[in-house]
């Protein structure tokens, strides 16, 4: 009963504060929208994905991924993590790839089997490759990725809910001989 009384009192307060006060209501709405925007930018976001480059981890169409912005600009990213970053060449486009090299690491420059040229990932950059190597445009084409472009780390596929699964560096396994 106490809970109901409390709820009714809160409702009454909201009513007296906002009913008939269009300016107050508009301000509160704007503040809520901005709070959501900040949460989306610096907390978590759920975004649809498209493309074959991350098969079999992320499907070609229809998957929505949960992105944690805590890892923006490459904070705390390790080899094997899947990251979402602003495309190097396309303005306003987000790309999802897996990190295969951190600053200082030596990585294979081209597709395995094509050449054996290794290069060292420069300071502040990382080496990103799609899981579906033949159908991915990644660091093999545009070179090391500046970590300042990283928007966040992909934690899981959350939609469709029936196919939800977490994504992480555990997916990366050493080659079996």
């Amino acid at each position: 009963m106490a809970f109901l009384q409390r709820a009714s009192r809160t409702f009454k307060w909201i009513h007296t504060r906002y009913a008939g006060h269009p300016f107050r209501l508009a301000t509160a709405t704007l503040q809520s929208l901005l709070a959501l925007h900040v949460f989306w930018k610096f907390g978590y976001s759920v975004e649809p994905t498209w493309g074959a480059s991350m098969l079999p981890t992320i499907q070609v169409m229809g998957d929505h991924v949960l992105i944690s912005k805590q890892y923006r600009r490459g904070r705390g990213i390790e080899v094997g993590d899947v990251v979402a970053f602003n495309s190097v060449y396309e303005p306003g486009e987000t790309v999802i790839k897996r990190v295969l090299g951190m600053p200082g690491d030596y990585v294979l420059r081209d597709t395995p089997g094509r050449s054996n040229v290794m290069l060292q990932v420069p300071e502040g950059h990382c080496w990103v490759i799609g899981d579906n190597i033949p159908y991915s445009r990644d660091s093999r084409h545009f070179g090391p990725l500046p970590m300042g472009l990283i928007r966040g780390k992909v934690l899981a596929v959350v939609f469709p809910w029936g196919e939800r699964r977490s994504i992480g560096r555990e997916d990366l396994k050493p080659v079996e001989n």
């Binding site: 420069p122 300042g148 472009l149």
Partner: peptide, 20 residues
């Protein structure tokens, strides 16, 4: 900030070698 950039403009950006 990245729209209609011209030579001579002064910009701020995340340093590629030091992301923070």
């Amino acid at each position: 900030p990245a729209k209609n950039l011209q030579r001579g403009m002064i910009v701020t950006f995340w340093s590629p070698s030091h992301p923070e």
